[in-house]
């Protein structure tokens, strides 16, 4: 057998291994992502309930300051610390406008920065074949676009927005994201339905009830993510 023929066979085998492992690897990335973002939301929602000053006020806002740590930890196991550290470049860039209390500029920097770093971390950081868009990537991108668009709307119109409308609107976006994630892990579909139809009922009793429901949903999101991640771990 010639060396060229052997190389051809080796390439075929590599392609098959890649195909076989791709689905599992992506599910694992997704499960970890759901876990980290579930923890981020649970933590900040708890702060909204117990220490609202830290959660909401500028420049303290924990939602803002922990955002980039969530991005960092969500990509760390798969993209490595070098690629993942790029999230902090966006953090530093957005910090300036954040402290000047310029919400529109901050959100614009965050959206552009996150899109740019996402390409490096998720598009290039995983090596061969990762540039191909899969179902998992599509869902991740839709999550990002929905929240990006939400914050863009808020940045432009927050002065005229009613507080409860804001809370219900973010709940709706969160619920759609979770519902979409049900394509990968079916249990998220049920959680999405709960968020979309039960949380608005809780909101009827007051903001605190809505926040508690949101917080519990985020905790379930994190726990389901962790369960899926561990389960995948046993398999591979």
């Amino acid at each position: 057998m010639k060396r060229e023929e052997l190389r051809k066979i080796l390439d075929e085998i590599d392609t098959l291994i890649f195909l076989a492992e791709k689905g599992e690897k992506e599910r694992k990335i997704f499960a970890w992502y759901m876990f980290v973002w579930g923890v981020y939301t649970t933590l900040n929602m708890s702060l909204m309930l117990f220490l609202p000053t830290i959660a909401k006020s500028i420049p303290l806002s924990s939602w803002f300051h922990t955002l980039f740590f969530a991005f960092f930890f969500s990509s760390l196991p798969f993209a490595g610390w070098k690629n993942s550290s790029l999230w902090f470049v966006v953090y530093i860039a957005s910090l300036l406008s954040f402290y000047f209390n310029n919400l529109i500029l901050t959100v614009a920097i965050i959206i552009v920065g996150i899109s740019f770093v996402s390409y490096f971390v998720y598009g290039r950081g995983h090596g061969e074949g990762s540039n191909r868009i899969s179902t998992v990537s599509y869902i991740g991108i839709v999550w990002g676009i929905m929240f990006g668009a939400f914050w863009w709307n808020i940045a432009l119109h927050y002065r005229t927005l009613n507080d409860m409308f804001f809370n219900l609107w973010i709940t709706y976006v969160f619920g759609i994201g979770i519902l979409l994630s049900g394509v990968i892990f079916r249990r998220y579909f049920l959680l999405g339905l709960f968020i979309l139809f039960i949380l608005p009922i809780l909101a009827k009793f007051g903001k605190t009830y809505l926040f508690v429901g949101y917080d519990i949903s985020a905790l379930i999101m994190a726990l389901l993510g962790l369960t899926m991640y561990m389960k995948d771990d046993e398999r591979t």
Binding site: M1, R7, I9, L10, I13, D14
Partner: peptide, 10 residues
Amino acid sequence: NLRDFLRELE
């Protein structure tokens, strides 16, 4: 395993 075997052969 097949890949490793063929690499050794290579």
